[in-house]
């Protein structure tokens, strides 16, 4: 089976001021096959955010290996990681994280812009993405003119525009009421059904239940009781 992403025995240590070492991840190994839809759960301090940051190439592990689409990205430098983020990863955040001064279509365009691709085709692809999430009539709106659900749709379109290996969603419904949250989950399910690999961090069990499988983190390790590596 082809892997969208693999982490192999990754460790992450933080050194606090005063020399205290916090071991946020203590040897985590997970395989994410292509087309996977995983929910990661865990209490705060369990290491799930750290794991998500590593998966999102926003941080580097202290030890271990991270393969993204078959490429070892654990030793890349800052510029190379930026490149990986713009080409191979899509982010969906709890608070949408759209840029206020940019229009909908410009927000969607950002990953392509940082790839250096500002062609007419790039702009067309952004318009397609906006259509896909049902916002084709709001291309020139600014984020503050949109509802929370609409903003999250823009964020989803932005996460898809570069056709990434993996979509990382950090509490994608956390700021939304349940009806809107349901809409967003349906969008994510539709994406997964179309073959996208989605890794989602959440602390809501009924949201996690929508994924194929759930991983539980505790004290920097995967909880042993969780079914691991099995596709449902």
């Amino acid at each position: 089976m082809k892997m969208a992403a693999r982490v192999i025995d990754v460790h992450k240590d933080y050194v606090l001021k005063g020399g205290v070492v916090v071991r946020a991840l203590r040897g985590v190994s997970i395989d994410f096959p292509e087309g996977d839809f995983v929910a990661i759960m865990g209490s705060s301090g369990s290491g799930k955010s750290t794991l998500l940051n590593l998966l999102g190439c926003l941080d580097r592990c202290t030890r271990g290996q991270y393969l993204l689409g078959g490429q070892d990205v654990s030793q890349l430098d800052d510029d190379e990681l930026s490149d990986i983020r713009s080409r191979n990863l899509g982010f969906i955040f709890q608070s949408y994280n759209l840029i206020a001064q940019l229009s909908v279509v410009e927000n969607i365009e950002l990953p392509l812009y940082y790839q250096g691709n500002i062609s007419r085709e790039a702009r067309e692809r952004c318009v397609q993405m906006a259509e896909m999430v049902g916002l084709s009539d709001r291309l020139d709106h600014r984020p503050f003119q949109l509802s929370g659900g609409q903003q999250q749709r823009v964020a989803i379109a932005r996460a898809l525009v570069n056709n990434p290996h993996v979509i990382l969603a950090d509490e994608p419904t956390g700021n939304l009421d349940s009806a809107t949250g349901e809409e967003i989950m349906q969008v994510l399910e539709a994406l997964n059904a179309a073959g996208k690999t989605i890794i989602m961090v959440t602390h809501e069990p009924d949201i996690a239940a929508r994924a194929h499988r759930t991983l539980r983190m505790k004290d920097g390790l995967l909880d042993a009781h969780t079914p691991y590596g099995a596709l449902t």
Binding site: L58, D79, S82, Y114
Partner: peptide, 16 residues
């Protein structure tokens, strides 16, 4: 600051 974080997450390099 937050905008900078978003841009970095979406692939902006330091020089960008």
């Amino acid at each position: 600051t937050r905008e900078i974080g978003i841009r970095r997450a979406l692939g902006a390099k330091q020089r960008d």
